[in-house]
Design a protein around this nucleic acid. Structure first.
Lengths: 108, 108
DNA sequence: ATATGCTACCTTTCAAAGCAAGGTACCTAT
DNA sequence: ATAGGTACCTTGCTTTGAAAGGTAGCATAT
């Protein structure tokens, strides 16, 4: 899988998931990995960034299957960021599709 | 426009354009800029990379409107790279859409 | 008891690629 | 000669994902 494609999109994916319900970090990796190759070393720094930017808050919850889980909850700031990013993504994809499928001028 | 989205995709865009006809660098910037924000400082190093990897060859052509233009022509290696990248792109987009629109498990 | 394996957290170091800014030079029109 | 558009290019910076490594809880098997 092309690493570069992921740049910036993982942010959108994580925000989109958190917009639907709370996740803990490891769970995000598991879920996203079903569709896109991703490693923990990517997700944790990203979540840290989100926290710094006020997009998420944290709470701990114990688990029977291992150590306590650190859940991430989207803030209203994070929700706004998500909605903006989603719009940007869609217009970006439109742009790319125009280039990939669009007509060309005569040879210059 | 989100810079990160572009990573790797510009490569696909340029290959796609060159797959249809020859372009010179400045022309690629002009064309792609219709749909995606892009600067010359991005395109020229990318074209240089393509040349190093054997994806393109060059030829010069004079112009009445300014200095001579350096055209880029896709090689068969470049064509193969394009086709692979296009497939990767489509499956990547599918993955992203699954995450953005897909169903979630119960809260864990 | 201890070793393995899964869960779950985290950090450090590195590489890739786009950008801003800057530079060169050609040509045309004023 | 000076300005503006065309067309080429490079350097230094930033962002973000990856690989590799580390800590620790819990369960099961030896």
């Amino acid at each position: 899988m092309n690493i570069q494609f992921k740049k910036g999109v993982l942010e959108l994916c994580v925000l989109s998931l958190l917009n639907r319900r709370d996740f803990y970090g490891y769970e995000l990796v598991e879920h996203i990995s079903k569709y896109i190759n991703i490693s923990e070393g990517t997700i944790y720094p990203l979540l840290r960034r989100f926290r710094t930017e006020g997009y998420v808050t944290n709470y701990l919850k114990e688990s029977q299957e291992g150590p306590p889980r650190k859940y991430y909850k989207l803030t209203s700031t994070g929700e706004e960021a998500f909605e903006e990013l989603e719009i940007e993504w869609e217009s970006f994809i439109d742009g790319v599709n125009n280039i990939l499928r669009g007509e060309l001028d005569e040879q210059g």
